[in-house]
Design a binder for these strands. Sequence first.
DNA 1: GAGATCGTTTCCACTGGGCGGCAGTTCCGG
DNA 2: CCGGAACTGCCGCCCAGTGGAAACGATCTC
Lengths: 249, 249
Amino acid sequence: MAGRTKNPGQSVSRRLLAVLDSFDVAHPALTLTEIARRSGLPVSTARRLITELREWGGLERLDDGRYRIGMRLWTIGTLAPQQRGLRAAALPYMHDLYQATQENIQLTVLDGTSALCIEKISSARAVPTLTQIGGRLPLHATGVGKAILAFSGPELLAEVAAAGLPRMTPNTITRPGVLAAALAEVRATGVAYSFEEMTLGAVSVAAPILRLDGSVRAALGIVAHSRAAVDRLAPAVRTAALGIARSVG
Amino acid sequence: MAGRTKNPGQSVSRRLLAVLDSFDVAHPALTLTEIARRSGLPVSTARRLITELREWGGLERLDDGRYRIGMRLWTIGTLAPQQRGLRAAALPYMHDLYQATQENIQLTVLDGTSALCIEKISSARAVPTLTQIGGRLPLHATGVGKAILAFSGPELLAEVAAAGLPRMTPNTITRPGVLAAALAEVRATGVAYSFEEMTLGAVSVAAPILRLDGSVRAALGIVAHSRAAVDRLAPAVRTAALGIARSVG
DNA sequence: GAGATCGTTTCCACTGGGCGGCAGTTCCGG
DNA sequence: CCGGAACTGCCGCCCAGTGGAAACGATCTC
């Protein structure tokens, strides 16, 4: 179709989806020029595609000229079944856990080689966390991440280790052997901890939500201030995780 | 670009988005042929576009050959800000309301000429409802819909009436004048009711969640069995709605 | 107030990605 | 076993898409 294309072989679909990929939790609103840069498209190409997305309702334009994701995409996204039944089943348990602990509660699933947060309950008085719904957490440095990693196949650990274990804080585990040993303990105890390994000032305890065949479906975690005795929260998060596993079926 | 196209002028983007539009809460998984039918595309065209969406992660294929929405779209959809802050602020109040009433709790926003459900809390012992997150509810027949309609501009009522007020049950209001009078009462009392107007056996009470300028941001509703005295639930849903309005800011 | 810079909008000559029918294959139900 | 439906792979043709350039608008600095 194109008279002269910078990327021969790149389809219109890919370009359109590249526009959508420009947005993330750190960049929920972007100008035309920012979208062009982040998607690797010329400005005029990005503009045509943005116009099509706007007409459909996938993007909307703010008064200051920036664009953001529209509700049409949210609506379609809610149809993704991987999070649908799990979220519905988990919400009551998450609220129980929140009321019992008054700390941040997170529900995550494995997505590629990271933990994707699909639900979160927090409040102003709980320790601030950077996690947002739709955001990703590293598997090696978070409680929920380790809970997922511990009950996944060894290939996942190998893949994660091969990609490198970036240091998030001075306490982050960065050696594969040390991580493997930590995961063995998670399997033995049924809970995973992160002691200021992701964020200084925050500790977490998490339990896996397993399927009947023993594979990991999700992980439920509590994130508290580093002064908190998170080991005392372990029974509560394990109990809630087991309840969710039963509810999902 | 195409050698021979059935719909000259229809862009690749539109076709791709039409594929996504094939899915809805009633049809979360579809075969190739079903997608082609529902999107109005030839099978081979639908197939190429589906392949592109699969490669990107927007669709995934089940073992039985059907396709469903992938988590990539859920992740991008969560970035839509219209629901983001509202849901986070509303969840604690919704759970309080759920615990106090043990009934279905729904949070909806206006989307076009219907109420879009963006959060829902229910349980097996509450009256079954057809509402699902991401699903739409008619404005004229539901409590949340009337709460939104009552505090929107008169153009919305005109638009909704012009499109027709379909009868959902024998109790549904189908005359614009009758609906307008009902909405005046909602404005006077601050709550909207649906007495088996959407579903036989279910009644609801809802309150609007207003912005500081008085415009309607969302509506919060309780759906109960028709034997329930929903008027007694009105103060609770109003209180929760006011709390949410304050939390959102 | 003028010039520089950046972002946005519009235009259009050129062309290659997309079109969808068709033939072949696979699957399933009677 | 057969027929119908669904799915897969292919490809000649052409028009939708490409992206650079020019113009315009907004903002900032001197």
